[in-house]
Design a binder for these strands. Structure first.
Lengths: 66, 66
DNA sequence: TAAAAATGTAAAGTTTACTTGTCTTTTTGG
DNA sequence: CCAAAAAGACAAGTAAACTTTACATTTTTA
């Protein structure tokens, strides 16, 4: 699965730490998600989508390997 | 977080076992998700959304407690 | 151009998703 | 009515998400 959190975060003009704080996770979690190191829970995806005013599907996308 | 997987599954006329098989998880995982026992990963949410031809946001919704 | 802010990375520990197996209960169709 | 299919539930184990701490590197800003 890939995501464009880094882009959405840039549009929203937030640092990783600020985004983390707003959705209640650690800064390292945001860093790892942006780096594709792991797949977030659906609650996290929904929270990001809400914050960025986008749908989950606009931020997260399945890949052939999923 | 709440979800309407049970309804979507009924619309698609699939058993828990059939849905599980189609998205590559165990039957118990589907049962637990429908029962709200745990929050699926975003990959699972995307796979269900794709199968049901719905957006993730139409199937999964944040609650006040999230 | 130095200091500060932001990002990257990594290890160890906790929590939770998910599996496998088994049994019981409910629903469905003949 | 009854058997078979489906759903519900539970326990024990594994895998992965997420935290905390700590430090190194890169980028930004004064």
């Amino acid at each position: 699965m890939k995501n464009n959190v880094k882009v959405q975060r840039a549009i929203a003009n937030l640092t990783q730490a600020e985004l983390a704080e707003k959705i209640g996770v650690s800064r390292q979690t945001i860093n790892a998600i942006e780096a594709g190191k792991y797949v977030p829970s659906t609650v996290l995806a929904l929270k990001m989508a809400k914050l960025f005013e986008k749908s989950v599907n606009e931020i997260f996308e399945l890949e052939a390997t999923d």
